[in-house]
């Protein structure tokens, strides 16, 4: 049987705060990503999507966070138990990440060529000339015209779409096995967004890479992903294939999200919303974390947190669908 590319087991990530207890940004999150698969991670701001993404690269400490416990197993190796030097060899090489804001994620004082070639030269022993040519090729494939000339440009001289193409080229430079795209199109306008998504899909077609696609935009998730995980307050509330999640969402939160995104473009109607707001992570409600906003809330929801349970339906590849809700769990 084939192995998953990435297994995240019981990941718990905390941030120190002024409250007596550290804030848990991610609480016992487990999931797997299989070869060639695009897995979507969807949720509102502050639900722990980016923290999960950074944890996979073990970069959370640079954002003042800490992985409290859990395992991140990449191709059979727990990277949290590897020495930093070994993890460095994986970063940018085996696992790459694309951040949301292309302007701030590029170094303003180095030219584009330098920023791409440095990934290549860090992870492989090839000459300057070769890595330069490789970088030009990457830019060209990413749809940048005049790639040769653009190599010498600085980030501020490029448009937002071009910058994101540069960031993607940087991430793809060493043909990683896992690409983490953290809201890669959120900062871009809609036409550019479509082009970037097209390009990412084209890259995926080669089938060698897996992708964790983080977004708050269900439309984009629906377009890109094979499977979806819905995150809320640092927990996964529901997982399933994209088809299932969109056709028969189980969790009231997922249903509300989909309802909202369907009705978003009905003219003359008030913008739909999921009532209530995301809970404060340092002051989470008892029981199910979604119960204050849930239309189907029951007594048990306020008292105990439901477990993430398999729904019984498994999809073709044998991957289970799960939901965290008392409505589907026998008490």
């Amino acid at each position: 049987m084939r192995m998953p590319v990435l297994q995240v087991k019981e990941l718990t990530a905390i941030f120190d705060s002024n409250t007596p207890e550290a804030v848990k940004a991610v609480d016992r999150v487990s999931f797997s990503i299989w070869p060639g698969e695009v897995v979507g991670l969807v949720g509102e701001s502050g639900s722990g999507k980016t923290v999960t993404a950074l944890s996979i690269l073990n970069l959370l400490s640079h954002k003042k966070g800490k992985i409290e416990r859990g395992e991140i197993i990449y191709k059979g190796v727990d990277i949290l138990s590897l020495p930093e030097k070994k993890v460095r060899e994986l970063r940018g090489n085996e696992m790459a990440i694309i951040f949301q804001e292309p302007l701030t994620s590029l170094n303003p004082v180095l030219n584009v060529g330098r920023q791409i070639t440095e990934v290549i030269s860090t992870h492989s022993r090839i000459s300057r000339r070769e890595s330069w040519e490789k970088a030009v090729g990457l830019l060209r494939r990413a749809g940048i015209s005049d790639a040769e000339k653009r190599m010498k440009a600085y980030p501020h001289q490029l448009s937002g779409g071009m910058r994101q193409r540069v960031v993607i080229s940087m991430a793809l430079a060493c043909s990683p096995g896992l690409l983490i795209a953290d809201e890669p199109t959120t900062a871009l306008d809609v036409t550019i967004q479509a082009q970037i998504l097209d390009y990412l899909r084209k890259v995926m077609e080669k089938g060698r890479m897996s992708m964790l696609f983080v977004s708050h935009d269900l439309g984009v998730i629906g377009e890109m992903c094979d499977r979806v995980m819905v995150m809320y307050a640092g927990r996964i509330l529901e997982t399933g294939t994209t088809m299932e999640i969109f056709k028969t969402p189980l969790h009231p939160y997922t249903r509300a999200l989909i309802e909202v995104s369907k009705n978003i473009s009905v003219p003359g109607k008030k913008l739909p919303v999921v009532t209530g707001s995301v809970p404060d992570l340092s002051n989470l409600p008892m029981g199910c974390k979604f119960h204050p906003r849930c239309p189907q809330v029951r007594k048990v929801c306020r008292e105990a947190e439901p477990p993430l349970k398999s729904t019984g339906s498994t999809n073709l590849k044998g991957r289970v669908c799960q939901v965290r809700c008392w409505n589907y769990t026998k008490i």
Binding site: R88, R91, A96, F99, S105, L106, V119, T122, H123, M170
Partner: peptide, 21 residues
């Protein structure tokens, strides 16, 4: 800054991150 996180995500050595970025 974000681009320092990017530099680290590229797998650069800490000294390279410091002196170059």
């Amino acid at each position: 800054q974000d681009y320092i996180l990017t530099a680290r995500a590229k797998g650069l050595k800490e000294s390279t991150v410091l002196f170059r970025h």
